[in-house]
């Protein structure tokens, strides 16, 4: 199988890999580059556990071909904490007890981050809409919704 080169920045660091044509971004990140924070919950775009941010857009990495991401700026949950310090969004998930098994958490955080980047003061409906592509089987969602709303408040207080 022919290999194609892909080159992008991942959480600010340059990465280059040769992948088989048709390789998903999820596979490239996890198995080639070693960032296992995106999770493969369905590999068919229905669970959201693999969510990453590509050039500011929320993307399902299991449905994104790695070869379409050349020169892209890719962000994952593994790169969120700066200097080992948790971001308010991560802090809020801890404080709200919004993680149980944790498998959906990185994808939830990515979805929430894109929301808060665009809508710093979201309504509950905004949060629900933003998380609607992410499946959680443990929490019943309410603690996650609360965590995102709390993070939004923390962000706006920091900005003020």
């Amino acid at each position: 199988m022919a290999k194609v080169p892909v080159q992008f920045t991942l959480n600010g660091s340059e990465k280059a890999e040769f992948v088989e044509s048709g390789t998903t971004l999820l596979h490239a990140l996890r198995d080639k580059i070693g960032d296992t924070s995106p999770k493969g919950g369905c590999h068919q775009g229905t669970c959201g556990a693999c969510s990453v941010i590509v050039d500011g857009e929320l993307r399902l990495s299991c449905l994104t071909l790695a070869e379409t991401c050349s020169d892209a700026d890719i962000r994952t949950t593994a790169g969120l904490a700066e200097g080992g310090v948790l971001q308010p969004l991560q802090r809020a998930f801890l404080d709200a007890f919004a993680t149980q098994c944790g498998f959906c958490t990185p994808g939830m955080i990515m979805a929430a981050k894109v929301l808060l980047d665009r809508t710093p003061n979201p309504s509950r409906e905004d949060v629900v809409e933003a998380l609607s592509g992410n499946i959680c089987r443990c929490t019943g969602y309410e603690p996650i919704i609360q965590a995102v709303l709390t993070a939004a408040r923390a962000n706006s207080q920091n900005a003020a």
Binding site: R30, T36, T77, L80, T99, I109
Partner: peptide
């Protein structure tokens, strides 16, 4: 008490079986 496993979850560092390659 806060859950000792949560920091791993929110940073994507928690190692599930499939995270081993």
């Amino acid at each position: 008490r806060p859950r000792l496993d949560s920091p791993g979850h929110v940073t994507g560092k928690t190692a599930y079986f499939a995270d081993r390659n």
